[in-house]
């Protein structure tokens, strides 16, 4: 464990807590893409299949349970909570995310570390996580004025994988045979997708104005 990875995990945890806070405090999920949340639930379930078979550390197991639990709770809340579900605007959340699931699964069938059930699903979850934010970014661009908590949620979600890139560089430099290419390349793509969001986030922060993404 290195500081970059720990910072990444904490930033990831913060992003999920910010989202839960927004939904719980405002009893609303307006501006949040249910499709992105569903993709994240699939990512965590597909990636943490080894939860009960491989023990790495208490930290690892606890964080996996938290990520799976929170992502399922958010999807449940947005779909079934009698108050919150009414604030979900499916007319703007129209990204066809099933194509992302299919595309990532097909890619995982061809590019993986080992052709085993668990490894193919692990690669699938890595690819899917890289593109899972797309429905949310599209929704942000569609719904002009976005509340602050939603913007913070997307910011922390983007920042966490940037920390992971530093972690992979650090591990590549310090561990002899560290070759985590699937995760590193997908992580670069994932962070690059946030590039324009980060740019407009920084501009809005500098001008102390609300985030305005170009439509």
């Amino acid at each position: 464990m290195n500081i970059f990875r720990f910072a990444g995990d904490m930033t990831h945890l913060i992003s999920i807590l910010v989202l839960l806070l927004k939904i719980y405090a405002t009893k609303s999920c307006s501006g949040i893409s249910l499709k992105t949340q569903e993709l994240y639930a699939i990512v965590f379930v597909a990636r943490y299949l080894d939860l009960f078979t491989d023990f790495i550390s208490v930290y690892n197991t606890v964080m996996k349970l938290v990520f799976i639990g929170c992502s399922l709770a958010i999807v449940w809340c947005m779909r079934l909570h009698r108050v919150v579900r009414r604030t979900y605007n499916k007319d703007v959340d129209t990204f066809r995310h099933y194509f992302l699931v299919l595309g990532c699964f097909l890619l995982a069938l061809f590019v993986h570390e080992k052709f085993t059930f668990q490894e193919v699903l692990w690669a699938f979850s890595i690819y899917l996580e890289a593109v899972a934010i797309l429905p949310q970014l599209v929704l942000l661009q569609r719904s002009g004025n976005v509340d602050n908590l939603t913007v913070q949620y997307v910011f922390f979600l983007g920042a966490y994988r940037a920390f992971y890139i530093l972690n992979w560089i650090y591990r590549y430099l310090t561990e002899p045979h560290f070759g985590r290419w699937i995760a590193s390349v997908a992580g670069l793509v994932q962070t690059a997708l946030y590039a324009d969001f980060f740019y407009y986030y920084f501009i809005s922060w500098k001008n102390n104005a609300k985030l305005q993404l170009p439509a």
Binding site: H12, T53, F55, N60, W122
Partner: peptide, 10 residues
């Protein structure tokens, strides 16, 4: 429980 380091990251 086998200890693996194949995917030790979250």
């Amino acid at each position: 429980l086998k200890l693996v380091d194949s995917h030790d990251e979250l």
